[in-house]
Design a protein around this nucleic acid. Sequence first.
DNA 1: TTGAAAGCGCTAACAC
DNA 2: GTGTTAGCGCTTTCAA
Lengths: 350, 350
Amino acid sequence: MAAKITSLQVAQKAGVSQSAVSRVFTPGASVSQKTADKVRAAARELGYRPNVLARAMVKGKSRIIGLVVAYLENFFYPETLELLSNALQEQGYHVLVFMTKQTADNIDDVMEEILDYQVDGIVMASVAMSSDISARCQQAGVPVVLFNRGQDIEGITAVSSDNHAGGRTVAEFLIAGEHQRIAYIAGWEGASTQRDREAGFRAGLAAAGHKLHAYAVGDFNTELARQAARDLFDKPANLRPDAVFVANDHMAFAVMDVLRFELNLQVPEDVSVIGYDDVPPAAWLAYNLTTMRQRANLMVAETVDALMDLISTPDTAMPRRVAIDSPLVVRTSARMPKGWNTKGSTNEGF
Amino acid sequence: MAAKITSLQVAQKAGVSQSAVSRVFTPGASVSQKTADKVRAAARELGYRPNVLARAMVKGKSRIIGLVVAYLENFFYPETLELLSNALQEQGYHVLVFMTKQTADNIDDVMEEILDYQVDGIVMASVAMSSDISARCQQAGVPVVLFNRGQDIEGITAVSSDNHAGGRTVAEFLIAGEHQRIAYIAGWEGASTQRDREAGFRAGLAAAGHKLHAYAVGDFNTELARQAARDLFDKPANLRPDAVFVANDHMAFAVMDVLRFELNLQVPEDVSVIGYDDVPPAAWLAYNLTTMRQRANLMVAETVDALMDLISTPDTAMPRRVAIDSPLVVRTSARMPKGWNTKGSTNEGF
DNA sequence: TTGAAAGCGCTAACAC
DNA sequence: GTGTTAGCGCTTTCAA
């Protein structure tokens, strides 16, 4: 193992000062062409590259973004992570991953750890934020953006889908499909996404003079979702729902499995199923799930944009509350309303 | 935004020297209880925490592990990432993510970037390694472990499943199931996993006096896998395969969709399908895929163990070549051999 | 344009 | 056990 090459060694080899070397590797510093050439030659020969950490120390900027994420089982998050990491890489940043459980003190610990790394910003995905933590980051001068979670804390930037409108659209679609007994399987109550989807859904039903026929909680957990499906559907045909909106796709797949393979129900003939997210398996034909798409690409773009804004102009950047439009992706898991115009909905594509 | 708190400020507040503060936060340093108490009190009051980057500078250890990964669409990788990140967190390390495309020069660039961060180690998942890169890391003194890829480069640590044995097991299972026309849909030829699975599979067939009835390449890509399935199966019943081993689950789902929904074939009555990985959707009942499990938990444990070994004793640690045993998970996508004893296979669980 | 010098926040000898 | 001192590898004044 050879020792690490420092700028000083390059300087000596090139016959210049150490600070000259630094300038050559500092975009926009003033160096003569001649010096630059000499230095680059020496650097190449030695295999020198500037030490990012040392640079971070003196500049007070690490070019690291901390990402806090609770679970990757829901395929929406891997997708997000890939998009986010790529987008950030393009801006010269990198993602340091912190996994956490949802419990509050765990998150507190994780936040402290994150701050220890002097990250330039934090993205919290699928994780709630207390005002304590928010204050802590504020105090440390580290901008935070919430991804796929809304929050009522003042001054915090949050990027999510328009879950309320999304829930409402589902209600409209189901009603247009002439469903009579409409059910809802909820996600985890701690999540704003769950609350907004449900509220929008209920509002949509109410607006058409309908009300929820049945309700169960799945907590964004497949096993609980499965149980919820049994509770709701293991009944005589005239009592059981003829449609169910499941708060995310991850649960919806489990629900469809129970419906078809445990209860011998046809989807959508016996019951229509609608999910939320449009994760990749939703398009797999064995499910072919009608669902609300979360436009991860746009959500990530907004997140990165907000972050860059907050980082470059911490004093003037305004906190944003972004709600990306969420289109309905019509597939075959829900009965198609007669003459449903595809306003705001889509079969595929963006 | 308050300024960042330094150890010096804590020292002043506590009325001790700056190095005393440092000692308090250095496990195993010698400090009196009294000093420690004073310092901790002051630190808490000020909200002080040591700057990890500064510590990294002087110690030459960043406690950051770089993870290079090409894609997260194959659900095997998110699972890995979650496991890896958790395991590393327990050891006081964190994962810095670098996404890359498979192309060689891209990887070169990514490696340089990684090295710039002074990572203590690198995990390359689903990414091949050239001997150039290997040499570069060696020179920089940064240990690398290959995850889910073998490699013939000398002295490099690689952790994967026993893909050869796995492929062989699939052949045995299919033959025991009295299949006559056995096909294979290959993954990307650049991947050792693909090559080993195929070699093992062919060896297993040969050992029983069988040979491959048909072959197509899916490159670990769903669209190509779909096309491969059409090429192989869109023929009269007596010509088409009655079983297919697909090089990973990700492709196997796409293949099953084509079989069932485009070609109207029954699985497993008309054709048995076997995958590799045992990603979560393999257990979803709509697929219920018989597959070889990659024991991600064990693979990750080995990876972390090897890494810690390499980091703590760089001079004496031996490169490892680990091949984790890969059990067959019998579900319903392949015809069950009569009297198949479950030696080495499993229905669920570990 | 360039070099010398002063730190960034911390750890690790080294004396006391 | 504790303070003093010398860096870790870099960027950034400041003079020249």
